[in-house]
Design a protein around this nucleic acid. Structure first.
Lengths: 377, 377
DNA sequence: ATATTGCTTTGGAACGTTCCAGACGACACG
DNA sequence: CGTGTCGTCTGGAACGTTCCAAAGCAATAT
């Protein structure tokens, strides 16, 4: 197969190779790849055969250079957060990669310094290594957004522009309030009335949003929330501490937590007191992490529809990179609830505890009162 | 500021821009970037100033085209495995990204079909989108290796070439046998004698390797292993079932598991029977997943040194891509043991069974203890 | 003085693709 | 019969970089 003299025998075939083989010009081969409908059908066929035989695939670098596009999407990942339950980011990465593939894009990962939200973006942008970014860590109130915006860098945010609701960049987010409302309502439906909240510090927009779902559901049933809430850091230890205090002081029968990490803290407290999640006290987490899925007896958890998020993000990216760019409104998706053992209704309790909606009246024994020590081996 | 006429005002500066500003030729600017020691110091300075002022960064596509290198490393990720505990891959991805950055490389993710180990590789290779691959899923006995080898595609494997020990490609792996030996010995040191094994089916090389660490440790103390082992699938349910059977039939006082997923199965059985891990029965898992870190009372687990793995992988990559390519021998790293509540010595048992020297089982920095607050859903 | 050497700098070519303007033939229209 | 239009195909140029060969120049060796 005639090759240009200086080429390695292992070098991938080029347009010129295919062109020669098919007896057409380079440009015709290019058209066969990019604008097949420009060719007469028989030439198209001939070229396609040549492409097939040679195993030709366009050289990415050359194409990128010419078209000023890399078909790469940059995604910054932070160092692993050890000791926490949430793996949202990882699940999202998987979904994003799969969805991007269908859009002909690949995901380029780069490292981030948690303290400097902008590190890494600049280099990739200036070296035209990526076409656009997906920005995820908007919990800080995203300076990336304004910075990237100022640089005219295309990006889509996973997370609302909390600090600037009038921001014009495309974003996709999950309705945390709806999720916590769902979780709380699920518990209320099982007869719980004293449902406690363990969330994050007040300066977290996401935390306050989720919390509002809890209060909304509680107040919707005319139930009080005072004394039932705690705001702490997102660690297992904090969740453990907060739940211990709440159990002592407010006697809740159920917990809704802003994260699986905090929920695991509750499970720690229960274990320490010989109580059983789902039997003595109900617990619901947030994120449906692997932890929630495998910890006995299974942690009920709000599940973010990350696959859908990825789809919407990619959709927004495609709009952004189209000619001319089209940017739609923000997209807010609704999470679901993965119900597991930690909030399963003990049959007897459920019957007893739902005077409002069902027939069975009044026994004021609550799940928490049924706590008893573990049976010995 | 002179720009070439047709250029957008927002277009990044090019070599020519910098050259004009510094009053030198393009090639001199190129040298200033790539071979600074070729320039006289004063010209170098002048050029560097111009680069600084214009914010110049070499265009990736052009550089890639010319040098036939993309500085990208391809990594295939499989769809998330729901319902399992292990997140090895994700931790590895993080480490790899960080380490790659220091080597001037970025990580390109692409999606994989678990059933077709080769999907995705071919396209990236033929389109010269990546310089090399990191191959991780070698548990299948890796057809990728031979296939990539045949295509002369540079790659480094995380995982030994089990099916072909004489394979010549570079690889990095973690000594699973040593890890399970460590885990078993840790239990033996606490006075346990009947230590059971729950592992994978016999056709898993990795599983058999890990299992050999358990038998080695047991036989080393003259203890029998018959009847104490079970081989199942890597699911929580399997681990639960296997542990239930073993508890009934072999009365072990401790379990060593081939994965955290299986270990969580054991915890399920214990919970169901009102038994407490670490008090009634000791449990050790493998991978030090997030689950192990947060489940009460903490799951002792063998921790793979993924940071080191990443460093070695990148080192191997650099050798592979050097001119001429240099491929070293395979690297086998030793895991550590993260000791947590599930294997804490019951005081009575330890007193009864062995004068246990107070061991310092792990000088590994224990990440669970370093948990930092960081709200992100 | 001339040749040799080493240091520094330079312009042209090339990497493989797509854009652009135009060529070519066929066909229809006036 | 000339002219325009359409469908199809082509060669040259350009994207921004690095490779290559060579040029200019100063200092040293012959």
């Amino acid at each position: 197969m005639a090759r240009i003299p200086g080429r390695q025998p292992t070098a991938p075939p080029t347009l010129a190779d295919v062109a020669e083989r098919a007896g057409v010009s380079r440009q015709t081969v290019s058209n066969a790849v990019n604008n097949p409908d420009l060719l007469r059908s028989d030439t198209l066929l001939r070229v396609q055969e040549a492409i097939e035989e040679l195993g030709y695939l366009p050289n990415r670098a050359a194409r990128n250079l010419r078209t000023r596009a890399s078909h790469l999407v940059g995604l910054r990942i932070n160092p692993v957060q050890e000791g926490t339950a949430s793996a949202i980011m990882d699940r999202f990465v998987h979904s994003l990669v799969e969805t991007s593939r269908e859009a002909g894009k690949h995901v380029l990962l780069f490292a981030g310094d948690p303290l400097d939200p902008l590190a890494g973006y600049d280099d990739l942008l200036r070296s035209t290594a990526v076409d656009a970014f997906v920005v995820t860590d908007t919990y800080l109130g995203n300076p990336q957004a304004t910075w990237l915006g100022a640089r005219r860098a295309p990006f889509v945010a996973f997370g609302r522009p909390w600090d600037n609701p009038s921001a014009t960049h495309p974003w996709v987010d999950v309705d945390g309030a709806a999720g916590c409302d769902l979780a709380t309502t699920h518990l209320l439906d099982q007869g719980h009335e004293r449902v406690a909240w363990i969330g994050w510090r007040k300066d977290s927009w996401i935390g306050e949003d989720r919390r509002s779902g809890w209060t909304r559901a509680m107040h919707g049933r005319g139930l009080p929330t005072t004394g039932l809430a705690s705001r702490v850091e997102d660690t297992v230890a904090s969740g453990k501490g907060a739940s211990a205090v709440l159990l002592d002081e407010a006697r809740p029968t159920a917990f809704v937590c802003a994260s699986d990490t905090l929920a695991m803290g509750v499970l720690h407290t229960l274990a320490e007191r010989g109580m059983v999640a789902g039997r003595d006290v109900a617990v619901v987490g947030f994120d449906d992490s692997q932890v929630a899925q495998v910890v006995p007896p299974g942690l009920t958890s709000v599940r973010q529809p990350l696959e859908e998020v990825a789809v919407e993000v990619v959709k927004a990216l495609e709009g952004l990179l189209a000619h001319p760019p089209a940017v739609g409104p923000g997209v807010l998706l609704t999470p679901t609830l993965a119900v597991r053992g930690s909030s399963s209704a003990p049959a007897s309790a459920a019957d007893r505890l739902v005077p409002a909606t069902t027939t069975a009246p009044s026994n004021d024994r609550r799940p928490a009162d049924r706590a008893r020590p573990q049976p010995r081996n």
